[in-house]
Amino acid sequence: MQTKSAEIVGSNEDLLTEILLRLPVKSLIDFKLVSKQWHSIITNPNFCHLRSCRKTKPPAIGLFIHSGDFSYNESFDYVPFSVPRLRISPIQKHRLTIEDFSLDIRVVQSCNGLLLCRNIKGPGEWKYYVCNPTTKHSFRIPQLDENIKRGMCLAFDPAKSPHYHVVCVHECPKNSDLSFRIQIYSSKTGSWKICGNPFSSPQIYGRAVYWNGSVHWISILSAVFMYFNIDRQVLDKMPLPRISLRPRTKRFIYYFGESCDHLHFIIACQYEIRFDVYEMKRDYSEWFVKYKVDLSRVVAAYPEMIRDYNNRKYYHFHVLSLVRGEEEEEEPFLVLHIPRKVVRYNLVSMTFRVLHDFVSDESNYIMCYGGVLNSLSIGFQYIESLSCV
């Protein structure tokens, strides 16, 4: 009877697809080996798209950070979020499969299960790759024969389309009155195209975040918050957050990122351990305070966070990531890097626990520059995905 039932399911591809759509990613990766039929279904881009449409946006389950020896290669440290209580996990090595193994690779951005990576040579020699760390597949983005590139960003929403875009901001020719223009690579067409009009705006390139169908850049130094809508191909400004800090207080961007379809921003003074987490409304009308953070308990537990500079006390930590769950009742948390540790700090209950304990001064690579701005390019969320590259 079981054999007959299996034959019925196997002969009905629509029914088999419905069953496979309900399985977790790890099981699907194993089930690709069952048969050619199962492999064909699971690796079909439309299967991944259907799966994304039926599920709420999956949360991150871990964080990639670059290896501590600064010899950027295809191996990265991986810190999982689901570490059992009272147990400190050894940091794991995760290997990306890049077609050109002669390259030293670094992660540029994480976007809904895919990673944008590049080699570490000079700007004129940069090669960019889109990688899926779950399936271990990668694809090299065709080179742009353009002037100096000021920023590359991955734009991907598997619930909207199985295809992704790579957005490039680069300088216009010197004889142009305007400074920059945008080109977009489409994985659907396999080609680049110029989008929108040239523009002049200071420092909107660099670290970029994809959210709400747009790529976002921020520069607190020049008070510029910009976003580029992919579908409408329009560049626009975001409002500035209403921040109240003491006069002549130096502000640092501690975090700018997206989690479960929410855009977050943290700015604070390094001499304080209380700060706000801002969230942007979907209509771009304003930033509002979503969470209030007080790290007093963390500092009390780990006084090595307290440092002295010119006879003034400050606190040594980085916000590596802010993670929200797919359900509202799941408690959001910050992933903090403090001296020799990675800590998970729950934003509602204000409890915390260690995710990883570094050996010796292995973790100095995150803090070696002494500035919190450095954390903007350190932590990259890992979301399980079957998306094709």
Score class of each variant (00 low, 15 high):
residue 319 V to P: 07
residue 197 N to D: 15
residue 46 N to E: 11
residue 386 L to V: 06
residue 312 R to P: 00
residue 84 P to T: 08
residue 39 H to W: 02
residue 66 H to W: 01
residue 132 N to A: 01
residue 297 R to S: 13
residue 206 G to N: 11
residue 251 R to D: 11
residue 78 Y to D: 00
residue 253 I to T: 15
residue 267 I to C: 13
residue 94 H to L: 03
residue 227 Y to E: 06
residue 243 I to W: 04
residue 5 S to F: 12
residue 61 I to M: 10
residue 122 G to A: 13
residue 18 E to M: 08
residue 67 S to F: 01
residue 228 F to Q: 10
residue 254 Y to S: 14
residue 44 N to Y: 07
residue 367 M to Y: 00
residue 387 S to A: 15
residue 91 I to H: 01
residue 378 I to A: 05
residue 193 K to L: 02
residue 40 S to A: 14
residue 183 Q to P: 01
residue 214 S to T: 05
residue 41 I to H: 06
residue 339 P to H: 10
residue 24 P to G: 09
residue 334 L to K: 00
residue 145 D to Q: 14
residue 13 E to A: 13
residue 121 K to C: 06
residue 192 W to Q: 07
residue 160 K to L: 08
residue 228 F to G: 11
residue 270 Q to G: 08
residue 350 M to N: 15
residue 152 M to Q: 07
residue 348 V to I: 11
residue 370 G to T: 06
residue 330 E to M: 12
residue 91 I to E: 02
residue 39 H to Y: 13
residue 370 G to Q: 09
residue 31 F to G: 02
residue 295 L to R: 00
residue 27 S to K: 07
residue 92 Q to L: 12
residue 340 R to I: 06
residue 117 C to F: 01
residue 334 L to V: 03
residue 84 P to C: 08
residue 286 E to R: 13
residue 297 R to H: 10
residue 134 T to A: 05
residue 360 S to R: 14
residue 181 R to I: 06
residue 122 G to Y: 13
residue 101 F to E: 15
residue 65 I to D: 02
residue 87 R to G: 03
residue 209 V to Q: 02
residue 115 L to W: 04
residue 219 S to K: 09
residue 153 C to M: 12
residue 60 A to V: 07
residue 343 V to L: 15
residue 137 H to K: 10
residue 341 K to N: 07
residue 357 D to M: 11
residue 47 F to S: 10
residue 190 G to H: 09
residue 82 S to D: 15
residue 181 R to D: 13
residue 167 V to H: 03
residue 84 P to F: 08
residue 378 I to H: 01
residue 250 K to P: 00
residue 169 V to T: 08
residue 202 P to L: 10
residue 167 V to P: 11
residue 122 G to S: 11
residue 372 V to E: 14
residue 129 Y to P: 04
residue 317 F to L: 10
residue 13 E to S: 14
residue 250 K to Y: 02
residue 31 F to I: 10
residue 191 S to N: 10
residue 317 F to R: 01
residue 242 R to S: 13
residue 220 I to N: 03
residue 289 V to I: 15
residue 317 F to C: 06
residue 29 I to G: 01
residue 33 L to D: 02
residue 242 R to D: 15
residue 167 V to S: 12
residue 124 G to S: 12
residue 80 P to S: 11
residue 53 C to N: 14
residue 18 E to N: 15
residue 176 S to W: 04
residue 288 F to G: 06
residue 119 N to F: 03
residue 191 S to W: 03
residue 267 I to N: 05
residue 105 I to K: 00
residue 85 R to M: 05
residue 192 W to T: 12
residue 24 P to A: 11
residue 249 T to C: 15
residue 78 Y to M: 12
residue 73 N to A: 11
residue 142 P to A: 10
residue 300 A to G: 09
residue 92 Q to A: 09
residue 81 F to Q: 07
residue 134 T to C: 06
residue 193 K to I: 01
residue 247 P to L: 04
residue 295 L to W: 00
residue 27 S to P: 02
residue 22 R to Y: 05
residue 60 A to N: 05
residue 240 L to Y: 08
